[in-house]
Amino acid sequence: MSIWVNEETKVLVQGITGSAARLHTRQMLDYGTKIVGGVTPGKDGEEVEGVPVYGSVQKAVDATDADASVIYVPAPFAADAIIEAADAGINLIVCITEHIPVQDMITVHHYLKSRPVRLIGPNCPGIITPDNCKIGIMPGHIHQSGRIGVVSRSGTLTYEAVHALTTSGHGQSTAVGIGGDPISGTSFVDVLESFERDENTDAVIMIGEIGGDAEETAARWAQENMTKPIIGFIGGITAPPGKRMGHAGAIVSGSGGTAETKIAEMESCGIHVARRISEIVPLLNKAL
């Protein structure tokens, strides 16, 4: 029916007293997500949108039995928030925060490696299993429950793809935004692997962008391991080399990381790559 999150998932909001977190706590509650608590150090005993606030993740876990957490704390404190959540036994951490120093994320990545925890993000829109659980900042109403998995490095491009799917009658099993930073907790391969195993996902939309080689790695992995069709899209065909295109990870360095090399590798591995957003659904219909 979905990957990683469902109607049972009990979610904490770290940094819940901030304004963006408040807004999205309201929206997540309205969507039906089980938000069981919030965390802000020093704000123990307060309430936000009817949700109890705790002074630490451990206290919140003890009181609520939460198994997931979504992080909205400012960048200087975000790495600490991730590690605190992992230490408190949270097994799914979604980090929305952008502009986290890369060295902080390197430390976090290695700290989490030996622990039974999944980090999604940072600098990502979150994860949603339509009609069941929305953790993050995506607009809930564009989604519809169904059998197509979505994974993307970009927030707004994910919304584009989801919107195109929904308006053409294709619902989504789960949509995951893995984030636009050079170091992220969850890779394309991690998500593809779960979609391949999920019996309620029939095909996957994979949205990448310039920079790094995560798309190429995922394409080669998929060729060996995926039976379900993948429809790809890569943003940044017209991006000039050496310039960072908004996302910290979106940069063509030297001859590496261009959209052309990604598209070529994906196609040679059997992925159907759409050149325009409006081509995604026709390619999907053909592949199914």
Partner: peptide
């Protein structure tokens, strides 16, 4: 545009229509 990925895709779409961002 809002969002880096969408901003890149927007540039690409303009280019695809024969324009230049």
């Amino acid at each position: 545009v809002n969002g880096a990925g969408l901003a890149m895709a927007t540039m690409d779409a303009i280019y695809g229509e024969g324009g230049e961002p």
